[in-house]
């Protein structure tokens, strides 16, 4: 199993390096510090979303509601800033809202045992509905200047703030997964939840925290998106849902659970970001990005499933020509 996983990460890494080489050959401006920094800026928002999604997929779950949570957060931040006047309080309330959304998912999944795909299919619509109702379907853009710092500001001259936030969160998540008891339990639950119960692991609690964690990540992502586009709107974040799942899977997290790393996810996210940025620099239509992202996902998985495909072809030939 470990062998397979490693081989997937290797394939992905080679793919990524190849991609960078091609991009820098085709677009001379690609391999400049400033451009690379802007790549990291572009990947931060859905990268943060993907951090939460990764943890969930490791437990063999899935969360279709993270995009809606991000959208809801933007509304909560905007509205609570409207009546409190305090930006810090508003952002904290937004993140709290994300955590509550995650907890709502988590309770239904962990305590009642509803399959994650079904719960989050419902809450995706539900959370989005709440955001629409709160905002009456409008976009809100009454923000103070300071609010734009997270999404548009720079540290140390030219390092985008959101890149820093993403890196910090990625390292934090990685540490949580690999170093803490909770992280160990996350993998154990994803591998064999029954055996985890029989080892005294409180599976329901682990899962509850996993979904809360993803809710918080989605909220932070929503905050940054909203800050970057200077607007709060219910559907902000929705576009990143499928991308974040795709990047996670591309990064080697097994959709069946039990394996996956934050490092892989960051690479997966980077592949998407480099594709988008590079194609843009080369002057390829932005419409090609979707296509190439989809292709990247399928091609990498095809390569890492090559042994299965070869086996099937062999059997096919055996059956038909022997």
């Amino acid at each position: 199993m470990i062998g397979i996983k490693r081989s997937h990460e290797l394939i992905l890494l080679l793919f990524f390096i190849g991609l960078i080489i091609i991009m820098s050959l085709l677009a001379p401006s690609f391999l400049t510090i400033n451009n690379l920094l802007s790549v990291t800026q572009q990947m931060s928002e859905f990268g943060i979303l993907a951090l939460g999604v990764t943890v969930i997929i490791i437990t063999s779950g899935i969360d279709l509601s993270v995009g809606s949570i991000a959208g809801l957060t933007t509304i909560v931040i905007a509205m609570s800033y409207g009546w409190s006047g305090s930006l810090v309080a508003a952002i904290l309330l937004g993140i709290l809202a994300g955590a509550l959304c995650g907890a709502f998912n988590g309770v239904l999944i962990a305590k009642i045992g509803v399959p994650p795909m079904l719960v989050t299919l419902g809450t995706m619509t539900f959370f989005n509905g709440i955001a629409l109702v709160l905002s009456k379907g409008n976009a809100i853009s009454d923000f103070p200047e300071e609010f734009y710092f997270a999404g548009q500001g720079y540290l140390f001259g030219n390092i985008p703030v959101q890149t820093v936030i993403f890196l910090v969160l990625a390292i934090l998540t990685s540490l949580l997964l690999s170093k803490t008891p909770w992280g160990r339990r996350v993998y154990a639950v994803g591998n064999n939840s029954v055996a985890a119960v029989f080892s005294g692991v409180q599976v329901d609690k682990v899962l509850l925290y996993v979904y809360i964690f993803a809710g918080i990540m989605a909220a932070i992502s929503g905050w940054i998106i909203s800050s970057r586009v200077s607007t709060a709107r219910a559907d902000l974040g929705a576009v990143y849902l499928m991308q974040s799942i795709a990047a996670t899977v591309l990064g080697g997290t097994n959709i069946a659970g039990g394996s996956g790393t934050i490092f892989g996810t960051v690479i997966g996210v980077s592949v998407f970001a480099v594709l988008a940025n590079g194609l843009n620099l080369i002057g390829v239509s932005p419409f090609a990005q979707n296509l190439l992202m989809g292709l990247a996902l399928i091609v990498v998985l095809l390569i890492s499933n090559m042994s299965i495909i070869k086996r099937k072809i062999t059997i096919f030939i055996k059956l038909n020509f022997n």
């Binding site: 160990r184 993998y187 064999n192 029954v194 055996a195 029989f198 080892s199 692991v201 394996s259």
Partner: peptide, 17 residues
Amino acid sequence: LEGLIGKSSVCQNITLS
């Protein structure tokens, strides 16, 4: 089914509890 995390190492199984 109930005793082991099969895809996990000996060490991590022993210390899980």
